[in-house]
């Protein structure tokens, strides 16, 4: 009974030994000085004490928030077409939209009257919202945006239902888009435009040559 287990153990040791000889060496000096771990513990706390603390004195000092902070959702009302995608995608159904249709009379040069959706109500209940951002992702017309504002706590839970004027007030707190990383690829639009410009330039360069040849 003992032999196979010994064999197994030695095998284990061998297989470990190939990968972890360095670990074994590292643990030797630790064993050499008893209580070295205790000293390390004291040194760690003392070093931390000597450094600046990480605390931000929040109400007195505004926190430095990272870009794309999910504070509150802002509504740019003019962009909204009442497509209802946000309300339908919302996992906890905290967006309430109501609208009516209005006819826009036809222009002076013929054509026909057009109907248009007019937004009456756009409420987000922030007592239900879980800040997943799906509504913002799904909005085809960029009517919803994240704002980093977070100080909108209320005494009454009912007041956490922000209507469209309140949601519209957050718009001015939307930060400018974050600058791209210097090593990043150019945005799609710019890349396309540059490609087109380069093509045009190349054509112009070849055109005079063609003309002279002809």
């Amino acid at each position: 009974m003992t032999e196979p287990t010994e064999g197994l153990q030695s095998e284990d040791n061998r297989s470990e030994g190939t990968g972890s000889t360095n670990n074994g060496d590292a643990s030797v000096p630790r064993k050499a000085i008893p209580g070295a771990g205790l000293i390390t513990g004291l040194a760690t706390t003392f070093k931390t004490m000597m450094h600046r603390s990480h605390t931000v004195q929040y109400p007195d000092v505004a926190p430095v928030l990272p870009p794309r902070t999910r504070g509150v959702i802002a509504l740019i009302e003019e962009n909204c077409t009442v497509c209802m995608l946000c309300a339908r995608e919302c996992p906890d159904w905290c967006i309430y939209i109501d609208s009516h249709k209005e006819t826009v009379p036809a222009g002076p040069e013929g054509g026909r009257d057009r109907t248009r959706n007019m937004l009456d109500q756009f409420d987000i209940d922030f007592s239900l919202c879980m800040y997943c951002g799906i509504c913002i992702e799904v909005c085809p017309f960029d009517a919803l945006e994240w704002s980093p504002e977070f100080e909108y706590a209320e005494y009454d839970i009912k007041d956490l239902l922000h209507d469209k004027t309140r949601l519209g007030q957050w718009v001015e707190t939307i930060p400018a888009p974050v600058a791209l990383d210097p090593a990043a690829e150019a945005p799609k639009e710019i890349a396309l435009a540059e490609k087109a410009a380069a093509k045009k330039q190349a054509e112009q360069r070849t055109d005079p040559a063609k003309e002279t040849a002809e």
């Binding site: 706390t45 003392f46 931390t48 004490m49 450094h51 603390s53 990480h54 605390t55 004195q57």
Partner: peptide, 13 residues
Amino acid sequence: KAMAHMQGRLGPM
């Protein structure tokens, strides 16, 4: 205060 700073905090302020 000492405990707070050893834990990277400020303690009572």
